[in-house]
Nucleic acid binder design. Structure first.
Lengths: 201, 201
DNA sequence: TGTACATCAGTGAACGCGCGTTCACTGATGTAC
DNA sequence: TGTACATCAGTGAACGCGCGTTCACTGATGTAC
């Protein structure tokens, strides 16, 4: 089945990556150890050389997701000096993220994620809060530099940005890509922009 | 097991209701025919007197959800004559809905819902689009009566209202009720209100 | 450079469990006479 | 009002399937001498 023997560090990475891709395309409910094994060119039992259980793979997937969300915000921040443009960059990247596959909602909303693992709720919360926190910081900078209304709660604004993406992502998925996420994001951002920009433009 | 024999129409209602409650509290992944049966006081095989399969129960649950969402908007519309107050009513009710259990996201995001049933995607889409449509109509009325900026796209506004609730619901769930959904909704609504109200108040 | 050995990634058969579903049955309910 | 019968909701045992996991094994790789 396998062409070659690989070190466990490399395999762990491969396996988590493969599992995430499978969840993106078919959902957590359909994620089987056998499917993951097939994807990396191993036999099901081979997985257990690198992970103690299926649950441990899920944890590794969460680590991957956290890393990617962090990278998203980081890349958007680097792209421009203007906080409002940075926010728009986060929005655009998040949409691209959704287009690539719905791994995040499929894990966050799946109850299998948390069954028997209450600590995982904390973990997921920490990931989302971390993301929101990073976005909030951009908004705070905007307030300090005078582009964003100073009386607004940065966290609320950050959540509203996510709130632009979430329902759009749902419709996009339900319509098999028929719903125009980008158009919605453009219009919604325009409205949100008016609500948060310091000058009334 | 069962105290009495009941007509199949009553049982169907009971079973769908029981299934919806189980999904609300434990998620679709944990929904078993046995658990539903236990809840209505039947033996697992007894369910099959009223539904041909587990899938058919899922369809009945979707019907229930649709009815409740419709009722939500209807009740909010009756409550006030002012469209903006009506919108706020929809928001409040939707939050109450979430507090009662996360049945909707747990079904909409679960992939088991759609596996082997592509037509169900259409069904769920129809439910959500129906809900959005009803909310949009309120916004249109607001535009006709001059309370809402006429240049805005009603559907986008409707989705932003849902977008206030969705991420808040996620955090509320992950924090086991620790996140203050109402406070977030208040703040977010205030911002959205400013963005959509015809006068700049 | 060659040999012996330890390590460990990968294999395949087998397990046990949960769960949806089937099926022959029982016995209560309502109706026809 | 009473009896016979058909209907059909409810039961419990048994099934088959998928899937996570275990275990004894094989054989490639890297290292020590």
């Amino acid at each position: 089945m396998s062409d070659e023997k690989l070190g466990t560090e490399i395999r762990k990475e491969q396996i988590a990556e493969a599992a995430l891709k499978l969840v993106s395309s078919h959902g957590l409910g359909r994620l089987s150890v056998a499917a993951v094994a097939r994807r990396v060119g191993l036999v099901p039992s081979g997985i257990y050389r690198h992970f103690r259980s299926k649950d441990e793979i899920l944890s590794a997937m969460l680590d991957l997701i956290e890393r990617r969300l962090t990278d998203n915000v980081h890349a958007a921040s680097e792209e421009s000096a203007d906080p409002l443009t940075q926010l728009r960059g986060v929005l655009v990247r998040h949409i691209r993220f959704i287009r690539e596959g719905r791994a995040i909602p499929r894990i966050v909303f799946a109850d299998e994620t948390f069954v028997g693992h209450p600590e995982r709720k904390t973990r997921v919360q920490q990931i989302l809060r971390g993301y929101l926190g990073r976005v909030s910081r951009i908004i705070q900078q905007g307030q300090e530099q005078g582009q964003v209304r100073p009386e607004l709660d940065p966290e609320t604004v950050a959540m509203m940005i996510i709130g632009i993406v979430m329902p759009a992502g749902v419709l996009w998925h339900l319509s098999d890509g028929g719903f125009d996420v980008t158009r919605h994001a453009d219009r919604a951002w325009q409205m949100l922009h008016r609500a948060i920009a310091a000058d009334g433009t």
